[in-house]
């Protein structure tokens, strides 16, 4: 930190705690898609959605100053999750961003609910990406094809050269692990 003080921002001070740094990285990874998809779903064009991601992330970074581990209950991740949700919704409100209305994009009735939904979706994809690395390909396929794509179990078993029983076990293992990762992530904006 002392090597080049001018390029260091207050961000680093706030994230001096190694655990919080890790949380910040995870947060950026997880929430960029949340904000992006949220903005897209609200009808913004791709480039504009990228801009929204950047502005909101910048605001969260600014707000880091107000995080106080001793005063706030709950985890840093939980705090971030609530902060980003409020900032994103506020930003949309304040900018009166006029979405291009297209029939394919559904109207979002409740911004908060839409954000929660995007958040949960991002968590699932985030967890799934990790879990996929942890398991053998056939185990992952058993889960993906029967539980997500809803393909016929007997057919998947035949194609993966597994017994049906093995498919049952494999897909349950994958789901259990995804659930575990999501539950442990502590990113939860619905508590605020």
């Amino acid at each position: 930190m002392s090597t080049d003080p001018e390029t260091r921002t207050s961000l680093l001070v706030q994230l001096a705690d190694g655990e919080n740094q890790q949380a910040w990285f995870e947060f950026v990874e997880l929430y960029q898609p949340v904000i992006f998809n949220y903005a897209r779903r609200r009808g913004l064009q791709e480039a504009d959605a990228h801009d929204v991601v950047q502005v909101v992330m910048a605001r969260v970074a600014t707000k880091l100053k107000t995080w106080d581990a001793d005063q706030q209950r709950g985890s840093f991740r939980g705090w971030l999750a609530i902060a980003v949700k409020n900032l994103a919704i506020d930003y949309f409100r304040s900018q009166k961003l006029r979405p291009i209305h297209l029939p394919e994009l559904p109207d979002v009735i409740a911004p908060a609910a839409a954000f929660d939904w995007e958040q949960r979706r991002s968590l699932f994809h985030w967890a799934a990406a990790r879990v996929q690395q942890e398991f053998q390909s056939s185990t992952w396929q058993a889960f993906w094809r029967t539980a997500v794509l809803d393909q016929h179990l007997a057919q998947v078993a035949r194609e993966l050269n597994m017994t049906r029983g093995a498919i049952y076990v494999a897909r349950s293992r994958v789901l259990a692990r995804i659930r575990q990762l999501i539950s442990q992530s502590e990113f939860d904006s619905t508590q605020g």
Binding site: F36, N37, R40, F124, H125, A128, V148, I178
Partner: peptide
């Protein structure tokens, strides 16, 4: 149910 819904829906990373 969530796994099926969330993972099968169109998801664009940033």
């Amino acid at each position: 149910e969530d796994a099926a819904e969330m993972l099968s829906s169109d998801f664009v990373n940033v």
